[in-house]
Design a protein around this nucleic acid. Structure first.
Lengths: 187, 187
DNA sequence: GTCTATAAAGCGATAGAC
DNA sequence: GTCTATCGCTTTATAGAC
């Protein structure tokens, strides 16, 4: 919008926010220009594949962020019971901040329920598969009896919490959903 | 597609499936023609407001279905504890069948996380608000200590289960998520 | 690298014949 | 009531000047 960035990497977060706000189909090149402050020519210079390459780059960037801030900590937390519990705690802290209690959508989640799922199949599935796998491992290390079911339930609570908080236009709903899902055994 | 229907009411379910498969923005008039077997002229005859009126009619139809099959039973089940439990049971049966374990998306949910939320604000909010209210009442009657939090959690499990089942391309995930969410107290 | 101009296709919506 | 033809606009993508 304001200051035109000069590197491909600096552009990606701006593209990401545009895709999150308008969805894949709803995001036009004109919107992408406004969001980045760049002209058509510059965008196609950085992303010759156009809109599809931009969305793919955004998904890769999101994946990298979660790898570093969520998945990797969960993985390395799976050594002992106490570390595992703390790994899950920090996951929810990161996630709550990242999604801003549902004010910000999960782009892989949005793509999952739309036609974009086909086009970005690997990225969408990979994102959620790694989340499930790493959280399952952490929950198992923390002593959960059915770690995979519990991991699916908690991740679904995050995704459903986003949907519900936005539908009701009430961010508190997101926090309530997460807290309720965690409550029974605090794992 | 196959047989062109002749009444407005008969067209709506076909439109609904098209919107569910392609999203609001992704559903073009050409797709709507294919889905209904009707020409442009006929569609505009039934829905002078075009695409927006069609989507509004679909949302109203979905709302009516849930009113009859889910919300109304939940409301009338809120008289006694045992009826309330059974009302919640039938809700999950209806929902599991309706969403086909995540193979079918929830259109109000899809609209909630997209830009369509603004245009169909009342319909989206009304659908989820009534779901939350009626389920809260039933859970309260069934003896739940925090019925509203629990209602939000269970509805979020449905929405998140759809997202996750589609992302992982595994309908079993939907059922696992629902069962896990219900497990702790079976309410 | 960044821009504007423009091509080629698809969009929603309308008009008018039947 | 249903159709086809078409308008006017927006879309993605490309070309070429600077």
């Amino acid at each position: 919008m304001a200051k035109p960035p000069t590197t491909r990497d600096a552009v990606i977060p701006l593209l990401a926010e545009a895709f999150r706000e308008h969805g894949y189909q709803g995001t036009s090149m004109a919107i992408l220009q406004d969001a980045t402050g760049l002209g058509r020519g510059s965008l196609y210079h950085f992303f010759p594949g156009g809109k599809e390459e931009m969305a793919a780059a955004v998904l890769a960037d999101i994946r990298a962020w979660f790898d570093e801030r969520v998945f990797s900590p969960l993985r390395s937390a799976s050594t002992g019971a106490e570390e595992a519990r703390q790994g899950v705690d920090t996951m929810f802290d990161e996630v709550r901040t990242y999604f801003r209690s549902g004010r910000r959508v999960c782009l892989p989640g949005v793509f999952a329920i739309g036609r974009e799922r086909d086009k970005f199949d690997d990225a969408v599935r990979g994102y959620f598969a790694e989340w499930v796998d790493t959280l399952t491992a952490a929950l198992g290390a923390a002593g959960s009896s059915e770690p995979r079911s519990r991991a699916l339930q908690l991740i679904a609570a995050v995704q459903g919490g986003i949907v519900l908080a936005r539908a009701l236009d009430d961010p508190d709903v997101f926090d309530t959903v997460i807290d309720s899902a965690r409550a029974p055994i605090d794992l």
